[in-house]
């Protein structure tokens, strides 16, 4: 009998591998191999408008020494940070409301519906609203509050951040909601019964349970916003130029892939560092479960208390 069961498990496993094979090959061919190729291309040379597959570090040295690269990276990180933070903070109360205060799913469906209105449409919508002859400026001018249009509304990092927040808010809501679903009303009641304030509930119960979703929603938005190159191109103006836009230009306009590839790899390293830093910061602020919550598994920290 045991033998038969093992035979079944074995066959099940084998059919699992067979089922996974086509998608696995597809992902290897169109994701793993190209990613390596991009890495390798970052060491190639661009000479007289042709690409020479050799090995050189000059693309990296060049990228690291250019001021424009540094500034546009900082702009990208700034845009990513604020977009991630604002969309997470904006969605948190709504996720809370859906998780604990209502039983209907109508709200969720309404938010999802807005997700299906295209990315470019939103960019154009914000251009219509924030533009120099846009809705806000023309309303303010006809009300006599300002004499000439507020220039900073459009073609600035501000316009990019507003638009990206609008684009990513549905995503953050979904991620936060699935994280908050792990917190049961019993958890909240227990904290209240033990005399916890609202702040305690948030800091000592909700964050340690839902921290993965909270960090995830911030990092997801941060990385996708900082890596975006179409919104900055259309709404960022001079001051809102991001490194993503420079990278896409190297690939699509100047044809200098090695330079673009090197910048892309550097940006990837920055993203990885930023992700590690965020997780670290949550631990330091004691908002994520660290050693403190598991004293038994870590006798050193238990004895310290």
């Amino acid at each position: 009998m045991e033998k038969l069961k093992a035979a079944f498990a074995d066959r099940r496993e084998r059919s699992g591998f067979l089922l996974a094979a086509p998608a696995f090959l597809f992902l290897v061919a169109l994701f793993i191999v190209p990613s390596f190729l991009l890495f390798i291309a970052s060491f190639w040379q661009f000479d007289n408008a042709t690409i020479v597959p050799t090995f050189t570090l000059s693309n990296y040295l060049e990228a690291l020494s250019r001021r424009a690269v540094l500034y546009s990276t900082l702009t990208a990180l700034k845009i990513g940070f604020w977009s991630g933070l604002i969309s997470t903070v904006l969605s948190f109360p709504v996720a809370w409301y859906i998780a604990f205060k209502t039983r209907s799913n109508v709200l969720l469906y309404l938010v999802l519906l807005s997700w299906f209105s295209s990315y470019l449409v939103r960019i154009f919508a914000w251009r219509t609203i924030l533009g120099t002859q846009g809705i806000i400026n023309s309303a303010l001018m006809s009300a006599g509050l300002i004499d000439k249009p507020l220039e900073f509304l459009i073609f600035s990092p501000l316009a990019v951040i507003v638009t990206l927040v609008h684009i990513f808010v549905p995503f953050t809501l979904l991620l936060l909601l699935s994280a908050l679903r792990n917190v049961t009303p019993d958890h909240l009641d227990a904290c209240r019964d033990l005399g916890g304030t609202r702040f305690d509930i948030l800091r000592k119960v909700v964050f340690p349970i839902a921290y993965k979703g909270i960090i995830g929603s911030f990092l997801f938005t941060f990385i996708l916003s900082a890596g975006d190159f179409i919104t900055p191109q259309l709404l960022g103006g001079r001051s809102g130029m991001t490194v993503g836009f420079m990278i896409s230009n190297e690939f699509r306009v100047s044809g200098n892939w090695p330079a673009g590839a090197a910048m892309a790899i550097l940006l990837l390293i920055v993203f990885l560092a930023a992700s590690a830093l965020t997780t670290r910061l949550f631990r330091l602020l004691r908002l994520a479960p660290g050693v403190r919550y598991h004293p038994l598994q870590n006798p050193a920290s238990a004895s310290r208390r």
Partner: peptide
Amino acid sequence: IALPGLFIGASLLVL
């Protein structure tokens, strides 16, 4: 989807 589309697009272009 954990990577920005920029990376996917650029690497596919090279491929």
